[in-house]
Amino acid sequence: MRLYFKYMSIHLKSQMQYRTSFFLMSFGQFFIPFMVFGGLYLMFERFGQLKGWSFFEVALCFSVIHLSFSLSECFARGFDAFSSLVGKGDFDRLLVRPRSAALQVLGSKFEFTRIGRLLQSGIVFIWSVSNLPGLWTFPKLLALLFMVFNGLLIFTGIFILAATFCFWTIQALEVANVFTDGGREMAQYPLNIYEKGVTRFFTFIIPFGCVSYLPLMYILDKREGDMLLPLLMPFGGALFLIPCLLIWRIGVKHYRSTGS
């Protein structure tokens, strides 16, 4: 873990070498989700509510997913950009070092410009929390924190999965974006607005539901239940990481026996 922060600091130093580009990129990153959010706002202007969810409730859901996503893009960027690492042959370099490959890949790239996106999502988060009554209790805020954290792990898992495919096909698989970008777009709204199949997919296959819709039901008092439930539920999302890491290991093994 200490090493991970060392990696981070060297990348931060690198990024600071290009300050103008950093600020412009961050600025851009601030406005991309802002547009999406603008659309959300206008929709509610017109329709008032979404299947029983008010504007601020949906905004909370939106901001949780976007916080997770921007954090994962910042900290797990190494896996997202993995195809170039394999393509350039730099992955060999990682294998001759006495540390786990996954940690080194994670440390190979950070995308600090995502701070723009993070900031934007943070603002929406605070805005919706302060406009929703009864959220200011410790367990609820803690549950929200857990949701963001475990959401980060789910996105990371998808990045790892996509990276693993690079061992078989060198080109980056655009298919993975269906799940990262697609997952983000779907999960930013309460899942009950979709078809049953979609809801199930995002609950049991890629468990975005565990870090957004399901615990939010309890947090927003839409369903009665013990507060323990929304506190534990997000960690169900983290389980997703386990098979991802297993598949990753198979990928590394394959790479080392084929060298491609």
């Binding site: 130093k13 690198s14 370099r93």
Partner: peptide, 9 residues
Amino acid sequence: QRSQLWWDV
């Protein structure tokens, strides 16, 4: 042909 140093630091 490949560097092991970090380019910008």
